[in-house]
Computed example of a mutant assay.
Amino acid sequence: MRRRVFLFGGAALLVGVAPRLVSAADGELQEIVMAGRKDGSLVWFDPPGLLIRPGTTLRWRNEDRGNSHTATAYHPDNADHPLRIPPKAPAFDSGYLLLGESYEVALTEPGVYDYYCAPHEMSGMVGRVIVAAAGADDFTDYSPAGLPPEALARLPEISDIIARGRVTAGET
C-alpha cells in the first residue's frame, strides 16, 4: 500500500512540475551581469546593449563585491522616471541585489527597454534591451529625451545593438 501511495504521489509531483519544465525549456534565457571596480569608482551592466526575441527571459546577476545594484525600468512607476519602455509593457524593478543575487523578467512586448541601476544612474549604470522579431529594425524614431547626460553617454546606440545583437561593456 505504501508503495502505491509513494508512486501515486511521485506521479502527481511529476505531472505538476512537467509543464513548468517544458515552458522553461521553450523560452530563451539571457544574462546581464552587474559589475564594478573594486574601489567602486566605475560600475556597469554587461552587456549594456542586447537584442532579444519576444518572450526571452532576462536575468540580471550581481557580481560586484563592492556594491548592491538594481535593474529598474525607466517608467513613471519607478521614482517618476520618464517612460522609456514600450507603453504596454509592465514596469520592472529588481530591488537591491547583493553579491550573487539575481532577478529575472520575461520581456514579451516588442520595443526598446531602457533601464538603470537606482543608486548608480548618475554614474552612467544604464542598459538597453531591444525586443524584436527576426528582421525588425524600425526603432530609429526612438527619442533619448528625459535622461541625465551621464546615462545618455553610456547607452549603446540602437543601430549598433540591431547590427551586432550584443554590445559589450567598454564598447559604448
Results as ranks from 00 to 15, higher is better:
E31K: 14
P144N: 11
T57L: 03
P76V: 06
L7V: 12
D160F: 07
H75F: 05
Y113K: 04
Q30M: 12
L98F: 12
G9P: 01
S94K: 01
F139C: 12
F8Q: 11
V129I: 12
D26R: 15
L14G: 12
P119T: 13
A89D: 06
V131S: 01
T57S: 05
A136K: 14
I130Q: 10
D26W: 14
L58I: 06
G100A: 08
V43S: 11
V17C: 11
I85R: 00
A151M: 10
D141E: 12
M125A: 11
A25P: 02
L7Q: 04
A118N: 10
R65D: 05
E31T: 10
P90L: 08
A79V: 10
E171H: 10
D93S: 10
P47F: 14
V105M: 09
L107V: 14
Y116Q: 13
Y113R: 00
A169M: 14
M122D: 15
V43D: 11
G127T: 03
P54K: 04
Y74C: 11
I85Q: 11
T172I: 04
M125T: 14
F45Y: 12
A145N: 14
L152S: 13
Y142K: 05
R164M: 02
A91T: 02
L14C: 09
A18D: 14
V105I: 14
C117W: 00
G146M: 10
V5M: 03
K88C: 04
W44E: 01
E63H: 12
